[in-house]
Simulated scan of single mutants.
Amino acid sequence: MSTTAALPPTPKSPGHSVGARRKGPKQLPTLPLSAFTPPNTGTSDKFPLPPSPSTIQPEEIVDAHVIAPTGDLSSWKSQAGQNLGGRIRGVVVSLHGAEDVEKVVQDVSAASSSTPVLAIAVPFKLEDGVPASPPSYLASGSTSKPTIVLSATFSTSSQPAIDALAWALTEGFTVNIDIQSDLQQESGWEEFEEFLTKATASPDAKGKIILSNILPPPDDLTLPIFKLLTHPTYRSYQSHTASLSLFANLFVNFLPPAWGAPTPPTPAPPSSEDAAKAAAEAEKLKLEWKRRLKMYIGPAIEAFGFQRVLFGSSPAAPLTGTSPASSAGDWYELARESFAELGVEQDAIDAVFAQNAKLVYGASS
């Protein structure tokens, strides 16, 4: 597959050094609690507060993960609202659940739309191994527009799965991998790292990998944040996120999380006393989600930098049938505010919400 834009510099692949990295994982800085809570009233005026989240908006948005099995974006558009839909400059359409992938690919490629489709993510089963007779849309060296990328799920490592990913990367495909292994256990992280190490060992592996369901990972909302800070699963997340960042051409999607609840909406201005109480409760829930999100954004940014994180509004594909649905517009507001409240600069917001996806999917500026 051809790429029309140069990627930012990435670290060298760790090759077969996974064992060494486990013995001495990258030590991440500990994020201060002040990153997740507002400053107290005694904060000196010599230390400026971060910009208000309402004032930091991406100049444009590329939604890197929109699930639309038929290619129809009308449902996504109805959810997006003005804040997301008004800034959109392109989408990556995932055909998870499509019945006739080849037909949908043809229809989407031929259709004219006010929302540009940068890429189409087609289902790709790693466990089936290297495809013996790839469909026409996977023809080697295809230069079709939109770009065809592969959407796969990882649950356990196997030789066919290793061979399939190695083949896809050698062919130059971008592969979106939804991680469905148990990352609550150390063994789940280690197995996935071993899988990537073997699949990316070839020097001819020139494709890119994008991980989903890792930023943020599945979490238990009943676990208080102050306990999460020192919980073994969170420490493991910090360490292994750093290890994964050592793989060259590896990116992460920032998607609605698998937390067993829909994304809390931004409360509307109250019109009555009862509405004011409901709005206060909704704002409290939203604040709790943002604090938890920032717990995971911090280590991911420390590991990958702002150049390897891509915003998407649909959850990881296998979760759509089991988790409550989130509104694309609600998730965008929550995601944007979570980044903005970390005090990041405008160029970082622009990178996460648009520019990185343009680079990965080869879109011209």
Score class of each variant (00 low, 15 high):
359 L>G: 04
141 G>R: 04
292 R>F: 00
283 E>S: 11
245 S>P: 00
115 T>E: 00
255 L>R: 05
163 D>Y: 15
356 N>F: 07
103 K>P: 06
106 Q>K: 15
132 A>H: 02
48 P>N: 14
313 S>N: 10
145 K>I: 04
122 V>L: 08
160 P>D: 10
116 P>W: 05
229 L>T: 11
246 L>G: 11
87 R>D: 12
232 P>N: 06
77 K>G: 04
337 E>C: 04
157 S>G: 05
18 V>R: 02
45 D>F: 09
249 N>P: 01
180 Q>N: 15
212 S>C: 08
173 F>Y: 15
17 S>M: 11
17 S>H: 09
83 N>Q: 15
278 A>D: 12
147 T>N: 04
342 L>A: 08
84 L>Y: 11
238 Q>G: 08
158 S>E: 07
138 L>F: 08
51 P>G: 12
24 G>P: 00
80 A>H: 11
202 S>M: 13
279 A>I: 12
157 S>T: 09
282 A>Q: 14
19 G>N: 05
224 P>T: 05
174 T>R: 05
280 A>S: 14
323 S>L: 08
202 S>C: 14
339 F>D: 12
304 F>R: 02
82 Q>F: 10
180 Q>I: 10
14 P>K: 03
317 A>W: 07
111 A>G: 06
260 G>F: 01
179 I>M: 07
113 S>V: 02
349 I>Y: 03
66 V>T: 00
141 G>M: 05
207 G>S: 09
213 N>T: 04
83 N>H: 09
142 S>E: 10
359 L>M: 12
66 V>C: 01
24 G>N: 11
233 T>E: 03
344 V>L: 03
360 V>N: 10
166 A>C: 13
39 P>M: 14
76 W>E: 13
339 F>G: 13
210 I>K: 02
180 Q>M: 15
338 S>Y: 00
83 N>R: 14
67 I>D: 07
170 T>Q: 09
38 P>N: 00
205 A>D: 10
262 P>E: 10
271 S>W: 03
265 P>A: 12
364 S>Y: 04
326 S>G: 14
96 H>K: 04
88 I>L: 15
174 T>L: 14
261 A>L: 01
359 L>Y: 09
185 Q>E: 15
46 K>C: 10
69 P>Q: 10
171 E>C: 01
156 T>M: 05
175 V>Q: 08
95 L>F: 01
122 V>G: 05
95 L>R: 01
241 T>S: 14
142 S>G: 13
235 R>C: 08
50 P>Y: 01
108 V>M: 09
74 S>V: 07
71 G>K: 03
235 R>F: 08
92 V>S: 08
132 A>T: 04
263 T>C: 01
334 L>R: 01
173 F>Q: 07
